[in-house]
Design a protein around this nucleic acid. Structure first.
Lengths: 215, 215
DNA sequence: AGATGTGAAATTCTTCACAGCG
DNA sequence: CGCTGTGAAGAATTTCACATCT
């Protein structure tokens, strides 16, 4: 009912619904949400069932009310501030990507071990030396970390984040992290993803399964 | 036996084994691979079982031979060339990231609708206007596409890739794509991933499940 | 003793199918 | 009627547990 897969789909539904809201759409059927997000209609209904939210057979789901319900369920009370560690090409791209995007999460500070990258602003975000991380994370009450450091630095950096009382990490380094159980880690391994797509592109048979997404 | 999850794990094992090889390690037990990749030992054994590859109870798995077996199984015969579409911050970061990395996949050409970004080289990769895509993709026998375009351009660009006989797409735009069944699509939705981590970071209970990775 | 290979159980996730409502 | 909510079936995936080998 609150599995990782389910939450990932709810997040996708919410974005679709927000877009609909902007287009003035008031009602949506499970079938539409399903088509737009690439899942089965029954899956959408079951996912929404878990929210306790209920639509009507006649009009479907009230887009506005559903967005509110999803916000209640998905938006954590105190967790929306993130720290980015590693201001290389990938880190800078992530920073740029999140600027102006009305996501629920906001990157409050960036860190790099290279002192030349510290003490300036990049895409509107303050940059610090890595030594300032514990202090800034505590001061700004940051609870999320985004790791965009080289593979060799990933584990020590994760340890530092954990020691600074971070609760969740998105790791772009191609190294599985060892963390305490109370820290949620999501591995985003772009190289591995490309290799996977290469594999299934080669072995794609017509009539195969539908396209999948990364939860 | 050849599910998406399984292939994703095999790719991770392979990278670990390659690293071991570089460190001179000759033998590995299922337990070590499991610990390093964050899964159960039984899972590793079952995954390797599917390869038809067999270890010995005494020493475990022969790292060198296993890497060869994995290469046979995972490396598609003709599919290793990719095209990047969208040379913005994210696209440039991906390009930089893949340069020098000995991955099985290589980015052969980059495209952008902005003509100012065409006709030059970026991180060693030739850049073209989007109009040249069909020709270059055909000439270079490219079979994979990486989408790093704005959300609004994602679907039309995907259509163009599909028309150019691309077989697999990694989509960084936060929009699910509609593609024919014979095209494998992997959605990498960074905003959604961050929101998911925020959710589970907030709801993290001590004694919860281990960290997960993105297959 | 400790590790592999693997049936079988357990668990998780998805889809079916249909009652019931507007 | 077509759509929702949902029990039940069905698939897929993971984990257990143990015979077997060295």
């Amino acid at each position: 009912m609150t599995s990782e897969r389910t939450i990932a789909r709810l997040i996708v539904y919410r974005r679709l619904l927000n877009r609909m809201l902007g287009e003035g759409v008031r009602w949506a059927h499970s079938r539409e949400l399903a088509d737009l997000s690439g899942v089965q209609a029954a899956q959408v209904r079951r996912d929404l069932m878990g929210l306790g939210y209920t639509g009507t057979p006649a009009r479907g789901y009230d887009v506005c009310a559903l967005v509110r319900t999803l916000a209640e369920r998905l938006d954590p009370p105190g967790i929306r501030r993130a720290a980015l560690v590693g201001i290389g090409r990938m880190g800078a791209a992530i920073l740029a990507y999140f600027q102006g995007r009305g996501s629920g999460v906001e990157i409050r500070a960036a860190f790099d071990s290279d002192p030349r990258k510290a003490d300036r602003h990049l895409y509107g975000c303050a940059c610090h030396g890595i030594g300032d991380l514990p202090r800034v994370v505590a001061e700004e009450q940051i609870r999320l970390g985004i790791l965009a450091v080289p593979a060799g630095a990933a584990q020590p950096t994760a340890d530092l984040l954990v020691a600074s009382d971070i609760r969740g990490i998105v790791n772009f380094a191609p190294v599985p992290l060892r963390t305490p159980e109370h820290v949620f880690v999501e591995q985003v391994d772009i190289t591995a993803i490309l290799e996977k797509v290469a594999f299934f592109a080669a072995n794609a048979r017509v009539g195969g399964p539908l396209t999948r997404s990364t939860p």
